[in-house]
Computed example of a mutant assay.
Amino acid sequence: MTETLGFMAAVIGLLITPGPTNTLLAASGSQRGMRASVSLIPAELAGYLLAIALWGSVLGSLGERWEWLSVTLRIASALYIAYLALRMWRSATDLEVAARVVVSHSGLFLATLLNPKALLFAAAIFPQSAFRGPVEFVLPALLFSLLLIPIAALWIAFGTAVAGGRLRWLSPFVIQRGAALVLAGFSLSLGWSTLH
């Protein structure tokens, strides 16, 4: 029971912190509203579960033999997040571009798949026994899923509240530019920590 509560607290703590996926969810909420953006949650969940399973079962053992593999994947993640930041920054000033740069299911899935949080979940939060086989992975994955859904909805609701004027000091432009800066910060942080 204590292990389960510790797992839940760690998952909530990491999921609720701002990051690339949460930034994209909030941006979608501000652009498209709650109802349209909620459909992104399964893409986030699929991205996380796939990345956690890969990190935990395959890359854990391969990373010990081939150190360059982990470094390469972290650099690829940093570059992709930088690309998302640039797109979001540009979309804040050009409404025509903003209409085309709506957060898509595939875009959110890929951003989540490359999100460095997945590595932390696999290496430090999920029990190592979860990666022994599919049956062992089911319970932690189910609990993770039940925690992710309301947290993702909260990030979307935040973006929706901003766009709806309930947080008047924030505008969609500020959200887009702020989201771009957060993504750029994550990209730089990940790149710096990987190379040093």
Rank of each mutant, 00 (worst) to 15 (best):
M1Y: 11
T2D: 03
E3Q: 02
T4N: 03
G6I: 08
G6A: 14
G6N: 13
M8D: 05
A9G: 14
A10L: 13
A10P: 07
I12G: 06
I12V: 15
I16R: 03
I16L: 12
P18W: 10
G19P: 01
N22K: 09
L24P: 08
L25D: 11
A26C: 00
R32K: 13
G33K: 05
R35L: 13
S37M: 06
L40K: 12
L40G: 10
E44V: 15
G47W: 00
L50S: 12
A51E: 08
I52W: 00
A53F: 15
A53K: 05
W55F: 14
G60T: 14
S61E: 14
S61P: 06
G63E: 00
E67K: 03
L69N: 05
L69A: 11
V71D: 01
T72C: 04
T72Y: 01
L73K: 09
R74W: 02
A76K: 07
I81S: 00
A82M: 13
A82D: 00
A85H: 12
L86F: 14
L86I: 13
R87W: 04
S91Q: 04
S91R: 11
A92V: 12
T93Y: 13
D94L: 09
V97Q: 14
A98R: 15
A99D: 14
V101I: 12
S104H: 12
H105R: 11
S106T: 14
L108H: 01
F109R: 02
T112P: 07
L114W: 11
N115I: 10
P116E: 08
F121R: 08
A122L: 04
A122W: 01
I125H: 03
P127L: 01
P127K: 01
Q128V: 04
Q128W: 04
A130V: 08
F131G: 09
R132A: 15
G133V: 00
F137M: 05
V138I: 15
P140C: 00
L146H: 01
L146Y: 05
L148F: 10
I151C: 00
A153G: 13
A153L: 15
I156S: 07
A157P: 02
T160F: 07
G164C: 04
G165H: 13
G165A: 10
W169L: 11
L170Q: 03
P172I: 00
P172D: 03
V174T: 13
I175Y: 01
Q176C: 07
Q176V: 08
A180H: 05
A180D: 10
A184Q: 01
A184N: 08
A184H: 09
L188N: 04
S189F: 14
G191A: 15
G191F: 15
W192D: 03
L195S: 12
H196A: 12
